Simulated assay, not measured.
Amino acid sequence: MRDPLTTRQPRIVVIGGGTGLPVILGNLRDQNVDITAVVTVADDGGSSGIIRHYVNVVPPGDIRNVLVSLSELPNIEKDIFQYRFDTNDDFFAGHAIGNLIIAALSEMKGGIFDAVQELSEMMKVRGHIFPASNEPLELHAQFSDGTTMTGESEITGAHKLIQRVWVEDADSDDEPEAVQPVIDAIMNADQIVLGPGSLFTSILPNLMISNVGEAVRTTSAEVVYICNIMTQKGETENFSDADHVQVLNEHLGAPFINTVLVNSKKVPDEYIDYQRWTEMSTQVTHDFNGLRRLGCRVISSDFLELRDNGAFHNGQEVVRELLNLIGQTNY
């Protein structure tokens, strides 16, 4: 039986990847909560993809950003970790220093999981960071036309309607599994947070690891889905918020989302710079009745942050609502 919340910090597990995860974690870091971040390891793009190809380690990019978001180091030290070499540097072009450090420590420690635990201590991380798998995973997709494709960037770039995704171990025929601390964190949590992030390439790759999906489906914790503000080209074009939840339920074979946070604020016409934010398509439409039919509690509010001609989640407002859900009202 769990110890009562009155005697300990509430345990929040945030699952995802991409740029949305650090926004939530950075705003949770200084709150009176016990944070665990479960981070996708199926990325194959950019510096992460190049390092994975040559060194054969779990892609480090998402993990690097999460380490920085939860680190209590001075900004200058975090900036060094995040520094990306100029494209004019032939050998290091485009690589982030943090990616190289994670790759090196993964080799030294014999796997990404122990490497991240070591780095978490070095970087004075507040909370826990768990790679979803200790092995590099490949993301696979089947499209509505019956064709299949492998690789996160290739799947997104295909601009075809995705029917389902799954993950496979990149180095063996073994079924991917998360290490036990990941499962224990999910089963002992008070709140599970999914997103915000790309539905098919940031959130579902974690849930498609069989024991992770089973744990999220059976945990007694409240499962909260932070629905995206914008649809994503090549993944969720023309999706409503209910469509996002329906896809999650279909992949796990049961309705498991308890609460959905949806943005109610309209993105101003002509505001988005689609040349810069190439993955953004249109604003996610709201289908309240559809969400209720899926058994979800719906929390609709202004979660919008407009900056740099793009539409993003306001991390402070999202975290305020997450804390309200677990009775933390002093944010």
Rank of each mutant, 00 (worst) to 15 (best):
I162M: 00
S220Y: 03
I12E: 01
P268K: 07
G17P: 11
T87N: 12
F130A: 14
V39M: 01
N289V: 12
H313A: 10
I257Y: 05
D86S: 15
N188I: 09
E72N: 15
A93F: 03
D171C: 11
G290S: 08
S264C: 01
F200T: 11
K266F: 13
N32R: 14
I162T: 02
V58N: 04
N56V: 09
H244Q: 04
R126P: 06
D79C: 04
A189W: 02
D43F: 00
N206H: 09
R292K: 15
N258T: 11
L248N: 07
I183H: 03
R307T: 13
I299L: 14
E177V: 15
T156W: 05
V224C: 05
I112H: 04
G234F: 08
V58W: 01
V23S: 10
Q180H: 10
L70H: 07
F113Q: 04
D62H: 03
E154Q: 15
L28D: 07
S172M: 03
E250K: 12
D171M: 08
S47G: 14
T36N: 13
A221Y: 01
D287G: 08
Q232D: 11
T231Q: 10
G213L: 09
D173K: 07
G20Y: 01
Q275L: 10
D302T: 05
V319M: 02
L67W: 03
G94E: 11
S301P: 00
Q82C: 12
T36Q: 02
K109L: 12
R276E: 14
L119M: 12
L100F: 01
R64C: 03
N134A: 07
T231I: 13
E175T: 15
E222V: 14
R2P: 05
N249K: 13
E270N: 15
S240K: 03
V41D: 04
T218H: 09
P59D: 11
Q163L: 09
R11H: 15
G110C: 05
